[in-house]
Write a protein that binds this DNA or RNA. Structure first.
Length: 400
DNA sequence: TCTGGGGTCCTAGGACCC
DNA sequence: TCTGGGGTCCTAGGACCC
């Protein structure tokens, strides 16, 4: 345990300002201009922005309102997630074809394990070839880091960006990390960085001075990781595939609401959408949870275990019940959401105690129509609100 | 500047069982 | 009678990542 294994060779590849690059590929008039991609409406945040916008202080997760103030001449785009997903697949296919062992870590990130393939020099050339191939075939800029493990490789990619590459061999790791602010270590977010500041820790080198037992007392398991990562140690494997453990959807209203009928109908539509996805993937869920955020941003959840199911009626019933338990104040609501977890593979089970055979047929018929005409073409009567389809676009967007 | 949406993992307390 | 100890599951909340 511990120490750096110089025989490991891990590549981390990350598409540069991925959404922005796809938009520019679609319309090259956007090249060289400040670009902000973010949620529609007034309450959105920045999900991607070009370097020209970053020059004005814009960064991802920043409220759109503020971004507009900082960079008024920026071009705002609401985002085309179908195109992003398509391009992500294109890149995946290229990485997959070339790599002995790879992991897709997010829509725009990959890890590749090259250990034992060749010595480091060969790995570096190999990674540069792959990078060029991705850029040639997709027209999207991509950067990579190569080092002895996932963590250092990822940090290296961050330093290589934009449009670059960087190799950190074992003897360089310690010196490479030492001067960096602790936030550069994946795991150190806003809260951890803040609390480390109280301990007088600003840089990785500062972090190395904190004894391991202290970090473990304060941060638990995270403390162990902090101690190790400060030293460039990480033995996390590259994992080709992991089962999805949950699926969820949530939506912030364009205006906070106390309209219970509307809230219930939004929740109903959300459950229908999730249950449809569940059946499409031939999965069942055994736990449902409902989330509610009040106007003052206080957020609560209620969850319940249920027998394995993918049945709309069962899930809607549960969701509305959980919502009733949750919504106990007379305060306006900002957001509601639903999450299904404890997912297992398996078609719909037929419960012998309730004669559901006909219902299974019904669901399959409805799903057929949904596949044909799109997910929002059909809903239960309870999903209808005010005589129209419950969900106007400004209330609730089905995509991402 | 009032703060998205879809995920993963961890923690802490209580129930329950042996 | 004045109180074990471990294991596991469940719930709720929170940090983090892209």
């Amino acid at each position: 345990m511990g120490g750096l294994d110089p025989n490991r060779a891990i590549v981390h590849m990350d598409l540069d300002t991925f959404f922005v690059s796809v938009e520019r590929k679609k319309d090259n008039r956007l090249n060289g201009k400040p670009l902000i991609i973010g949620g529609t409406g007034d309450r959105g945040v920045v999900s991607s922005c070009s370097y020209e916008a970053r020059a004005f202080g814009v960064h991802s997760a920043m409220p759109i309102r503020l971004a507009k103030r900082l960079c008024p001449h920026a071009i705002l785009i609401s985002g085309d997630f179908e195109a992003y997903s398509e391009h992500s697949h294109m890149v995946s296919d290229i990485v997959k074809e070339a790599s002995p062992l790879y992991e897709k870590a997010s829509i725009d990130e990959f890890y590749i394990d090259l250990s034992g393939m060749e010595r480091f020099f060969g790995s570096y050339l190999w990674a540069r070839d792959l990078r060029n191939k991705v850029m040639d075939e997709t027209g999207l800029p991509i950067s990579f880091g190569l080092s002895v493990n996932k963590m250092v490789a990822k940090v290296a990619t961050g330093e290589a960006k934009p449009n670059g590459h960087l190799q950190i061999v074992a003897p360089q790791v310690s010196g490479f990390l030492a001067p960096m602010p602790v936030q550069k270590i994946p795991l150190v977010g806003k809260k951890t960085a803040q609390s480390l500041t109280y301990l007088g820790v600003k840089t990785v080198s500062n972090l190395r001075e904190i004894p391991r037992p202290v970090l473990e007392r304060v941060y638990g398991k995270q403390g162990t990781l902090l101690y190790r990562r400060a030293r460039g140690e990480d033995d996390a494997p590259v994992i080709p595939y992991t089962e999805q453990k949950s699926m969820s959807t949530e939506s912030t209203f364009s205006q906070d609401t106390i309209d219970i009928v509307k809230l219930r109908s939004v929740l109903t539509a959300m459950v229908e959408k999730l249950a449809f996805g569940l059946r499409k993937q031939r999965k069942l869920t055994a736990c449902i949870s409902v989330k509610l955020r009040y106007a003052n941003f206080e957020t609560f959840t209620r969850q319940a275990r249920i027998p394995y199911t993918a049945n709309d009626d069962v899930l809607i019933d549960k969701a509305l019940h959980l919502f009733t338990r949750l919504y106990d104040r007379r305060i306006r609501v900002r957001l509601v959401g639903v999450r299904l977890s404890h997912l297992v593979p398996g078609g719909m089970q037929i419960d012998l105690f309730q004669d559901q055979v006909r219902q299974v047929d019904l669901f399959q018929a409805l799903d057929g129509i949904k596949r044909k005409y799109g997910g929002s073409s059909i809903g239960k009567a309870s999903g209808i609100y005010g005589g129209k389809r419950a969900l106007r676009r400004e209330d609730y967007t089905g995509e991402l």
